[in-house]
Simulated scan of single mutants.
Amino acid sequence: MGAENISKTKVRAGIVGGAGYTGGEMLRILINHPNVELVFVHSISNAGNHVYDVHTDLFGDTDLKFAAELAYNINVLFLCVGHGDAKKFLEANPIPADIKIIDLSQDFRLSNDASGHKTRTKTFVYGLPELNKEAIKQAQNIANPGCFATCLQLGLLPLTSKGLLKGEVHITATTGSTGAGQSLSPTSHFTWRNDNLSVYKAFEHQHLNEIGQSLKQLQPGFNQPINFIPYRGDFTRGIIASMYIDCELSEAEALKLYHQYYDTHAFTHVTSHNIDLKQIVNTNKCFLQVKKHGGKLLIISIIDNLLKGASGQAVQNMNLMFGLDEKAGLRLKATAF
């Protein structure tokens, strides 16, 4: 279905893996999206149950039930499944070529060339709109970026666009507990997570690969270490990341560069003022604070890991793919206080 026809009707969407955190956020956005008809939500373990039996806040918003079977009378399929499961799903369930796919796992994010990751039958474009907007508009399949990867790349892309990453990058970032997914683990139980803070996967987080891939896309010669220390936070959602590099730009020059880079991007906003997570939690926004400290440029980046870091960005990609208003369905209110 072409963009000119979509504008007259609605995009018919399906969700695979609707019981988890990202599936729940996808449901919340799509049932309120002015240009979308949600056809089915697939979940074998919850088949026949109302979606509000799992996502209890949706009681009164929809009577949709989880389905055990797939339907192919759709325009776009969102894969909200675990890492490794998207590839298995597509191998077991060949999806017709005219159905666009947006995968929220990490299975198709890494690529050896500019065309994106390829399966035997499908090519995936890396779905970071602030990097690949024009390619996304023409794409048939999208690999949605990871949450940390989104937050960190948005902090660094303006610099790589001018070849200004010339030394090591130092990053510390803290994420909420929803970043660990819905399955319980020792570090996601309330009694462990509450009033607690810990480092994990220091220097070796899996999102470093896609971050490096994107930085080299804009600055091919970049080969410096990205020193990334992730923290588990004792809050539910959101990511706050601080990045610093050696930089010869003045603060005014850096702010001008960042404003110019994001001038045509709907959800990323730049300031020199202090920022905090409550400004962006429950939105598809990224806020960037840019400050100079001596010879160091400090960039603070904040996003909601479940929205701009996952489901919100996936819907943003869908909007671009179908020629819709990029902000459609994503004008969301922050928690604020």
Rank of each mutant, 00 (worst) to 15 (best):
G2D: 07
A3E: 11
E4V: 13
T9V: 13
A13C: 07
A13K: 04
G17I: 05
G18H: 01
Y21I: 15
M26P: 10
I29V: 04
L30G: 06
H33E: 01
P34Q: 03
V39Q: 10
F40I: 10
H42L: 10
I44G: 11
N46R: 06
A47E: 11
A47L: 02
A47H: 09
A47W: 00
N49M: 13
H50T: 06
T56Y: 06
T56M: 08
L64V: 02
A67E: 14
A68F: 09
E69P: 10
A71R: 15
I74K: 07
I74A: 08
N75G: 09
N75K: 06
G82P: 06
G84W: 03
G84C: 12
K87R: 12
E91F: 02
N93S: 11
I95V: 14
A97G: 12
A97K: 14
K100L: 03
K100I: 06
K100C: 10
K100V: 06
D103P: 15
L104N: 14
L104V: 14
L104G: 11
F108D: 10
S111A: 11
N112S: 09
A114R: 09
S115I: 02
S115E: 11
H117Y: 04
H117I: 02
T119R: 12
T123V: 05
V125I: 02
L128Q: 00
L131Y: 02
L131E: 01
N132S: 05
N132I: 02
K133M: 12
K133A: 13
E134Q: 00
E134N: 07
Q138N: 09
N141Q: 05
P145A: 07
C147P: 15
A149H: 11
L157H: 03
L159R: 02
L159M: 04
S161Y: 01
G163C: 03
L165Y: 10
G167R: 06
G167E: 06
G167K: 12
V169S: 11
T175W: 04
G179W: 05
S183T: 12
L184T: 01
R193K: 11
D195F: 04
N196S: 15
Q206G: 11
Q206K: 13
H207I: 11
H207A: 12
Q213H: 04
L215D: 08
K216M: 04
Q217W: 01
Q217P: 05
Q219E: 15
P225N: 08
P225A: 04
N227S: 08
P230Q: 02
R232P: 05
S242W: 04
M243T: 15
M243I: 15
C247K: 05
E248F: 04
E248S: 13
E251P: 14
E251F: 03
A254T: 12
K256R: 14
K256I: 07
H259K: 15
Y261Q: 09
Y262W: 00
T264W: 00
T264H: 10
F267W: 01
T268F: 05
H273D: 15
H273G: 13
N274Y: 01
N274W: 00
N274L: 08
L277M: 01
I280N: 01
N282G: 06
Q289K: 13
V290Y: 10
K292C: 09
K296G: 07
I300D: 15
I302P: 13
D304L: 02
L307Q: 02
G309I: 10
G312E: 01
Q313Y: 04
V315R: 01
M318R: 14
G323F: 03
G323E: 01
L324H: 13
G329M: 00
G329C: 08
R331T: 03
T335E: 05
